[in-house]
Amino acid sequence: MFRFRQTVCLSCALLGGGSGHAAPVPVQAGDTLTRLAIRYSTTIEALLGANPDLRTGVLRAGSTIEVPSRSRIWTVRAGDTLFGITRQQQITLADLLDLNPGLNPSRALQIGQTLRVPGGAPVRQTNAAPARSAVFRAASTGGSLILPVQGRLTTPFQSDHTGLDLAAPSGTPIRAVQAGTVTESRFDDRTGWGWTVVVDHGDGVTTRYSHNSANLADVGQRVEAGTVIAQVGSTGNSTGPHVDYRLTVQGVPVDPLTLN
C-alpha cells in the first residue's frame, strides 16, 4: 500500500456545533440536492429545511446555500500534507476537493490554512514527530531527499511540467519509489517521453519514469521500493540524460516533494 506521512496534529471541530446549525457553502455547476446531500453527509430533507426557498427555486452555480453542519474544519499544522489528511480521515481526494473548491492538490498546505472534511470522518490528534514519507523510502542514500535517482533537480514541478526532471549520468539506476505493479514498459514516441515505465501503487497512486536509456521491468512485474526498473537516458524529447519523474493521485498530478 502506498503510504504518506502522518500528520503532526490537527484542530478539528464541528461547524456550528451540531443539529440546528448550518454553514454557507458554494453551489457548483451541475449540483443537485442529491449531490449536495451526499457531499456534505446530510439529507435532502435537511437541506430543504435549512433553505426553504429551494422548494420553489433552482440551484444556481456560484450562489450559496446553508448546509446543516456535519462537516468539520481541519486547521493545518506543521507536517500536514493533503494526502496524509485524506488517508487519516478515510476519505478520498475527490471528497476533499468537492468540499474545498479552488484547493490545488499540487501545492503544499500552509500552516494555519483551514479545510473542510466530511463530518462522518474519524478525527484523531497526535503529537508524535512526523515520519519521513515512505514514498521516497530507500531509493537514495545521499542528500536530504530520497528520490528515484541520485541526481540534480533541473526542472521542478510547475504548471507546464507536472513532474520532476532529475539529471544523472546515462545508465544510472532508476528505482521504484514504492512497492507496486508495472503497468507500462514501452517506448512512448507519441508524447515524446521515450522509454517509459509506469508503476501502479494502488489506492489510485501511480508513478511514471521517462526518457530512459533502457527499461528493466516488464509489464505485470511486482516491484518493491528501491527495485531498479530502468536506467537514466535521453530518449524521446530530451536534451540530456535525466529521468522525468511524475506522481499522480487519483489522476491528479502532484509534486512529489510536497510529500517528502
Rank of each mutant, 00 (worst) to 15 (best):
I111L: 00
D218A: 09
R190I: 07
A108Q: 12
D31S: 13
G194R: 11
N260F: 07
G84P: 01
R132W: 09
Y40N: 03
G233L: 14
S133I: 02
C12S: 04
F187R: 07
P105H: 11
T183N: 08
S106I: 06
M1Y: 04
G119S: 09
Q88V: 14
G17F: 01
P148D: 01
Q125C: 06
Q231S: 10
Y245P: 02
I38A: 06
F136V: 12
T92M: 03
V76H: 06
V198M: 07
G251R: 04
S159H: 03
D53M: 06
L247W: 04
G112H: 08
T114I: 00
L166V: 01
D160A: 06
T239S: 08
V254W: 05
S144L: 02
R55S: 03
R72D: 09
G220E: 14
H242G: 02
G17W: 07
R70P: 02
G120R: 07
L14D: 04
G192Q: 15
S238Q: 03
D203G: 01
T206V: 03
P156D: 15
A179P: 06
N104R: 09
L82D: 04
Q158W: 13
Q221F: 04
S213C: 02
G62P: 12
S185M: 14
A176V: 12
S133N: 15
T141M: 06
S133R: 14
S144N: 14
T227G: 13
F136R: 14
T75W: 02
V243R: 13
V123G: 02
H201D: 02
L259D: 04
V117H: 01
L82I: 01
T196Q: 15
S69G: 12
G112S: 02
A214N: 07
L14W: 12
T248V: 12
L36Q: 05
L109S: 01
A50V: 03
H21G: 08
Y40L: 11
I229M: 10
N215Q: 15
G240I: 04
A22P: 10
F157Q: 05
Q28E: 09
V177H: 12
E45H: 10
I229P: 06
S41R: 14
A37L: 09
H211E: 00
D95P: 00
G163K: 09
G251P: 03
D218Y: 02
D203I: 01
Q125W: 06
T34A: 02
L147S: 14
L14M: 09
R222Q: 14
G240L: 05
T86C: 14
R87G: 12
E224A: 11
Q250V: 09
C12N: 07
T227A: 11
R246W: 05
I44K: 13
R222W: 15
S133W: 15
V219R: 08
